[in-house]
Design a protein around this nucleic acid. Structure first.
Lengths: 193, 193
DNA sequence: ACATTAGCCTAATAACATTAGTTATTGATT
DNA sequence: AATCAATAACTAATGTTATTAGGCTAATGT
C-alpha cells in the first residue's frame, strides 16, 4: 500500500482540472480515485463526501474568477473598468465552462458569504464607484450587472444565441455599451413606480 | 400485474409535479415508478432513459413559461409590456423553482429550436417592438433582457441578494426601470466601439 | 527499537439506471 | 364465447456511484 500523499487541496485541484476537461457533471469521486491511482474509499479520509468535493471545486472556481476580476479592474475606472470586469467574467465562462458551471453549485449562505462570490460582488460594487450613483442605486446597479453577465454567459454557453442572426459577441458589445449609458444617466431617470 | 395505463405524457406530468415539489435534482425514475405503483423497468416502455424524462420536464417547463409570457404581454405595449413580461418570468422562478431549474436542463439545438424557449425568445423580441429600435438593436435588446431576467432570477433564488442591504424586490424594480429607460434612449447612444 | 498515529486498503451495502428475457392483460378476430 | 397477437408490466441480473465499517501497514516520534 504505497502512500500517495493525498490532501484535500490536491484532490480539489485535480477535481477542478477534471471538471474543466470533462464537465462538472462528470466529476465523481470514482474518477478522482482513478486519477490518483487510489481506491475510492481512501478519498474519504480527506473529503467528507461528494458534496464537499463539489463545494471545494465551486469555491475554487469562485476564487479564480474573483481574482481575475480584481486584476481586471485594477488601474481602470468608468466604462473602461466596467468593460474589463464583465469581459473577464464572460471570458472565464467561455474558457472554463466546467469551472463556470461549478461556480453555480449551490452553497449555503454561510459558505457563500466567505467565498469568492462575495469578493466578486465587492469588486463589482467598487467598480461602480466610477459612476455617479447613490448608495442604494449602486447596489441596484451591481445586481443589474451581475445578473446580466451571469445570464448572458449561461445563454451563450447553452447555445441560445447561436441560432439567430447577429453574432452573440456583437450583442455583448452593444449591451455593455447600453449598460454603460444607463449607468451614466441613472440619476436622470424618473422613478415613476 | 394490474395495468396502470402508463403514458409518456402522464409520466412527464407526474415528473413535473415531483420536480416542483422536491426539486429537479430529486427527480429520478425510481421515484416516478414508486408514485405510479409500478416497478422501475416498466417505465422504459414509455421513456428511453432518465435523460428523456428530464428533457420532457424541461420542455414542459419552457412551454408553461412561454404560455404565461404570451398571456402577460397580450394587450400591453411599451414599458407596460416589458414589466409584465419580466415579472412573469421572475414570478415563475419564485413560484416554481423546480420547474425553473428544469428549464435550464441542457437541450440539443434541434430540440431547443422547437421548444418553448424559442417561443419565449419570440415573445420577448416581439414585445420590444414597443421601443424604437433598429432590427439588429432589437435582437441585442432581446438578449439583454433575457440575460438579465435569467441571471437575476438565478441569483435571487440562490440567495445571493439576501445578505446585503436593499431588498432584492426593490433592486428588481429599479433595474427594470433602468432597462426601460435604456431601451427608450437606445438610439441616442454613441457607438464608440 | 518500538508504539502510536494516520493513510490507504478490503469488504459490504445502498440507491439509481439500464438491459434481457418472461408473464399476463387487453382488445381484435374468429 | 374462445382464441390469439400485441404489448404493458414484471423478474432477474448487471453496472456505476457513493458511503460506512473495520483492518493492515507505512510513517513518525519518543
Amino acid at each position: 500500500m504505497p502512500r500517495v500523499g493525498l490532501t484535500k487541496d490536491k484532490i480539489i485541484q485535480e477535481a477542478a482540472k477534471l471538471a474543466d476537461a470533462k464537465g462538472f457533471d462528470s466529476l465523481t469521486l470514482t474518477a478522482i480515485a482513478l486519477l490518483f491511482g487510489v481506491r475510492l474509499p481512501s478519498l474519504y479520509g480527506h473529503v467528507a463526501n461528494v458534496h464537499e468535493l463539489k463545494k471545494g471545486v465551486a469555491l475554487l472556481a469562485l476564487e479564480r474568477l474573483a481574482e481575475r476580476s480584481e486584476e481586471a479592474v485594477a488601474g481602470r475606472a468608468g466604462k473602461d473598468a466596467l468593460v474589463a470586469l464583465v469581459d473577464t467574467h464572460r471570458d472565464f465562462a467561455q474558457e472554463h465552462p466546467g469551472l463556470f458551471h461549478a461556480s453555480r453549485y449551490p452553497l449555503d449562505g454561510e459558505t457563500a458569504q466567505r467565498s469568492g462570490g462575495a469578493r466578486l460582488a465587492r469588486v463589482n460594487h467598487a467598480m461602480l464607484r466610477g459612476y455617479d450613483l447613490g448608495d442604494a442605486d449602486r447596489v441596484h446597479a451591481t445586481r443589474l450587472i451581475a445578473a446580466f453577465v451571469l445570464g448572458f454567459s449561461l445563454l451563450e454557453l447553452a447555445g441560445s444565441f447561436s441560432h439567430s442572426a447577429p453574432d452573440a459577441a456583437l450583442s455583448w458589445k452593444r449591451d455593455v455599451d447600453g449598460l454603460d449609458a444607463l449607468l451614466q444617466n441613472w440619476a436622470k431617470q424618473k422613478n415613476d413606480t
